[in-house]
Amino acid sequence: MGKYLLRRILQMIPVVLGTTLLVYALVFALPGDPVKAMFGDKPINQAVAAQIRAEYNLDKPFIIQYLLFLKNALTLNFGNTFAGQPVIDEIARAFPVTIKLGLMAFVFEALFGVVFGIISGLKKGKWYDAVILIVSLLLISVPTFVTGFLMQYFIGVKWHLLPVTAGNDPGFLDLLMPAMVLGSVSMAYIIRLSRSEISSNISEDYVRTARAKGMTNRSVIVRHVLRNSMIPVITYLGQDLGALMGGAMISETIFNIHGIGFLTYQSILKGESNMVVSIVTLLTLIFVVCNLVVDMLYAVLDPRIRYA
């Protein structure tokens, strides 16, 4: 187990190096000159422009720029934005908001996904099973930004139940609707996953054996049906946690939340390569760690899986 863990951690190095290089290259290849953009409508002062270029290493070839970034990143110096602020400060300001949003979405999708999935799976064929199925199918097929705008219009604008947008330093209620929108698709997947797992597990032979032991229906369901059905659901949830952190871009834009997604979007527009690459590196790390945790959890949940 320890050996396996070490191997997995070492595997992260090439993954992180690979993604940073790729993202750096993509931002480098973006059309438009960020320095020119800084002058806006004003005429460009060539001397000043050259100075900025030198300061941000923009005058050097791509690979040198990338290596310089890496060198600085190793000492946790991620450079400055064009506006002169340290990248790390900007991320530190935006990240807590995204974490809050992501966790809320996570709790939302896990709770409602599993609960509705269990109801649906145990009561297959009942009318509410049909309703749950149709709603989940709708959530999966309609894009998030449509769901987002619809909820914003009805819940926020028309009925005034929840704030329409979040803005700076959002609280729980401000983030509730965005979290629901963010978690909705995954929730629908979890409903369908739990439902199919439960309905296939309930006819397993070992469930019948458990009943033959004289166990109560309740403990048969909990210990033999739900326990086994939750293994893939938990795996899915674990991987989704990483995805939620990075995938908040659309929700954050719709609801004007100044989190990581919003920051990434802005930085791409401005060609802030340092910022974009730093964020992506961070998200990659989160994603890889989440995956590792899921794999470890998997071995705990299913004794048949052993890592060597």
């Binding site: 032979d205 054996t209 033959a212 004289g214 299913d302």
Partner: peptide, 22 residues
């Protein structure tokens, strides 16, 4: 539930699938 196990026991057909793997 009252009589299963205590009054009637079952030895099922396929041993591979009749025990919960977890």
């Amino acid at each position: 539930e009252q009589i299963l196990g205590e009054k009637m026991g079952l030895v099922p057909q396929d041993p591979m699938s009749n025990l919960n793997p977890v």
